[in-house]
Amino acid sequence: MTTIRLTLLAYVSLGGTLAATGRSLAAVPFCLFALLICGELLLRAIPGVPAGHRAGVPAETGVPAARLGLAAMAGLVTLPLVALALHATGVPVRVTPLAAGIAATVSLAAAGAVLRELLRHRRADVPTQRGPHLPAAAAAVGTGTAVAVAVPVVLAIAIGGVAARIYTDSPKPEQPGYLSVALNGWAAGISKPVTVPRRGLVVPVRVTSAGLDPVTVSLRVRISGHLVGARPVTLDADTARSFTIRVPALPSDGCLRPVRISVGATSAGFYARGTGKGRAAC
């Protein structure tokens, strides 16, 4: 295929990728095809088309994927190289800059490839008609090669897909359940001792039960290890519930007191002091 046609195909594939954004099943083949063509154009532009098989010298004819594989690799590394170029120019790695970067690479590679082909034709004194053509042997992918790649890919998707689906859908052993308690709302942001006003303090907490049967447990509040409040709470299986607990006013002695909120064996808490600036020995 001519370089010009390949270049147009690359733009169309890239456009298709952008048009299919959000529909992965359509975007993936467009994107992979665009990268493969970009790689092929890079190969045409940089090392050029191989001059053909020389007698006695090993060549890639034994495994016809040599050209296709190198084009795929060149296309694949375009992504990180474009991302690095975007980073170097201070542009974030996002869809539009990436697509623009790949399009620029395609354009540059196509220009390089056309220039190289023109120079080669001029040196060989071959008349160019309807644009430069590549030798048939250097065509990127023949139909037979495409079939040789596509058949195992389709079979692998079918067999591997079914195997993976059976495995992921099969019943799994139960994971261990848990009951957790956490400071919630404003209390989740407590970063220093809290001053409890004279009217007391309402503290939100969140209790989560997962993988356990419905259970009724006691929600307790302790200050310096002494129980100051308790009430039973019922937790259904796999639920997270929010509660509030009330911390009573603390002495105005300026001393820190640990406040512990416990559900069963688990507990969260913080340190608090009363209002005022008492100087009692703590």
């Binding site: 990728t17 952008l18 299919a20 954004t21 959000g22 529909r23 992965s24 975007a27 993936v28 994107c31 694949l76 992504l79 990180p80 474009v82 991302a83 690095l84 980073h87 790695v93 996002r94 869809v95 990436l98 697509a99």
Partner: peptide
């Protein structure tokens, strides 16, 4: 060494995967 991460993130961004 962001080569792998850039490639994966770029593929994810371009395809929506």
């Amino acid at each position: 060494y962001p080569g792998l991460h850039a490639t994966v993130a770029s593929l994810a961004a371009l395809t929506g995967l």
